[in-house]
Amino acid sequence: MKWGLYLLGGLSVILIGIQFVPNNLPTVETANPGDIIASGIVSDDVAAILKTSCYSCHSNESIYPWYSYVAPSSWLVAKDVREGREELNFSNWQDYDMMEKLEKLDDITIEVGEGTMPMGIYTLMHPTASLNDVQREKIIAWAEDAMDVVLEEEDEEGDEE
């Protein structure tokens, strides 16, 4: 009995203690002129899916739920958002060059096709973000088309020069 109490007491102290460690959540920025959706390359229904299922980690418009502010889950959220933005940031889409855009779109077809994105831990906490087969196919078909559009745009620009 006593041991149990000590253990609980110890855990509580630790839990409270870690709340004082800064969480370093990446900052939120809502004005993103280079956003992929603003660029017009995303159809409305796909835009809606990206917003709900990907934007919290892959854009500057992350929406942080309550557990993002409580350690230790805050650390995990901060890490996922930091790494997610690094790999693919829809808010900074126009900063990518043609090859980067093609690679990212191709990665989207792979990750969404394999079901590795959105991350499982996220859909566990946010069931509405999980994708059904129809939605997956929609994203993949869109990304495939978008790759051709990106390439055509580049070719046209090349011709003008």
């Binding site: 980067e100 093609l102 779109l105 790759m147 051709d148 990106v150 390439l151």
Partner: peptide
């Protein structure tokens, strides 16, 4: 295989090939 499949490479469209080359 998931990341790169040479068997699919040559049959794939130009944008796909470029993406693969970039990676």
């Amino acid at each position: 295989k998931k990341k790169l499949d040479w068997d699919a490479f040559e049959a794939s469209k130009r944008s796909k090939q470029l993406a693969a080359k970039g990676k």
